[in-house]
Amino acid sequence: MAAGFAAIALWSALAALSVSAGPIPPFQMVAMTFAVGASIGIVRALARGVGWRGLLGWPMRIWLLGVGGLFGYHALYFAALQLAPPAEANLVNYLWPLLIVLLSAPLAGERLAWPHLLGAFLGFAGVILLAFGRGLSFTGAHALGYALALGCAFIWSLYSVLSRRFGETPTDAVAAFCAASALLSFACHLLFERTVWPATTTAWLSVLAIGIGPAGPAFYLWDHAVKHGDIRALGAFAYATPILSTALLIVCGLAEPTGALLIAAALVTVGAVLASRELWRS
C-alpha cells in the first residue's frame, strides 16, 4: 500500500513538472521520459542479477497488457487533449480510479462492500467539484475527444486490475514495457510532431525529473501495489492525485487557490478512509 501511495504522490507532481518543462510535443515528452524511466528499471534489474531473458522473456499476452496499458493509455490521452478541452477530457479520464474499484470484483475476484463503492464515488465527486469549480463546458462538438478520454479510463483501469491477475510477473517486466512504449512514442513523434527541445536548464531538469518520478519509478511502484495491496482502497486513494496536483500547482504559483479545492480534498479524504476501512481495522 505504501508503494501505491508513493506512486500517487509522484503522479501528482506531473502537472507542475510538465509546466516547468515547457511546450514539448506530447509524444516527444513520453519518448524522452519513458526512456529515462526504462533505463532506471533496466539498470536496477541487471544490478540484481536479472538477465535480459528475465526482462524480455514474457508471453505475448503479458506484452500486450504491459505495452497496451502504458502506451495505449498515453496515446489516447494525448489524442483526447487534442480533440476536447483539457479540463473536460481530464475529468472523463479520471473515471479510472472508480473503474478500478468496480472492475476489481469481476476481474480480480475481490469482494466489494458498500464502503468501497461509496469511497470511490465520493472521490469522483471531489474531482467533479474541483473541475467544475474551475469552469467546465461539455459540448457535443468534442464528443470524439470525450470518447477517447473514456477509453483512457478503461485502458488504465483494465491494465491495473489485470496486472493483479498476472501477479506472478515480476515488476522488472515494467522496464521492458516502458522501453517499448518509448520506442512507439518516438515513432509517433516522428510521424505527427515537430521536435522541440527543452529551452533552458530548468526545462531539461524537469524532463529528467519526470523520467525519474511520474514516468518511471511511479509505474514500478504502482505495479507492485496493485499486485500485492488492496486494489479497492488503491482505487479510492488514487483520487488524491488531481487534488495533490492542483495543490502543488498553487504552491508553485501556477494556479489560484479556490474553496472548491478544500471541499474536494475533504470528499476524497473521507472516501479514501471509507474504502480502506478494512486496512484500518487490521
Rank of each mutant, 00 (worst) to 15 (best):
A218W: 08
D230A: 04
S245Y: 01
A272Q: 08
A264T: 08
S245G: 08
A233E: 00
A266Y: 02
R232S: 00
G235A: 08
I212T: 14
T258L: 09
A260N: 13
Y239Q: 05
T246M: 14
A225P: 03
Y220S: 01
I263H: 09
I212D: 15
A238I: 09
P214E: 14
C252K: 04
G216K: 09
I243K: 07
G259S: 15
C252P: 06
A255I: 11
Y220V: 00
I212P: 04
E256K: 08
F219N: 05
V268C: 03
A240Q: 04
I243L: 08
I231A: 00
P242A: 08
I231H: 03
K227F: 05
L267C: 09
R232A: 04
A272K: 10
V251Y: 10
L267H: 02
A225G: 05
V268L: 01
D223S: 12
T246E: 13
L267I: 06
L267Q: 04
L262P: 12
I231K: 02
A218Y: 02
S245V: 10
Y239H: 15
A233I: 01
L244R: 11
A260W: 06
L221I: 03
I243E: 02
G253T: 12
P242Y: 00
A238S: 15
G229R: 06
P217M: 12
A240M: 07
L234I: 11
I212E: 13
V273P: 07
V273N: 09
A238V: 14
F237G: 04
L254H: 06
L234A: 04
A236T: 11
T258W: 05
V270R: 05
A218F: 06
V226R: 03
A264R: 01
I263L: 14
V226E: 00
G253Q: 13
I250L: 15
H228G: 01
A225V: 06
A272M: 11
V273I: 15
C252W: 12
V268M: 04
L254Y: 02
P242Q: 02
A265Q: 06
L221N: 07
G253I: 13
E256P: 00
W222M: 10
V273E: 03
P257A: 03
H228T: 07
C252L: 12
G271P: 10
L234Q: 09
V268S: 05
V273R: 11
L254G: 01
G235N: 03
G271W: 09
A265G: 12
V268W: 00
L261A: 11
G253V: 12
F237E: 04
T246D: 14
L248H: 07
D223R: 00
L262S: 15
D230V: 07
R232H: 00
V270D: 03
F237L: 09
I212G: 13
L254D: 06
S245E: 10
I263F: 11
I212M: 14
A264I: 08
G229L: 02
T246K: 10
P217Q: 09
G259I: 05
G216R: 11
V251S: 13
T241K: 12
G253L: 11
T241G: 11
P214G: 14
L248E: 11
H224P: 05
H224K: 12
T269A: 10
Y239F: 10
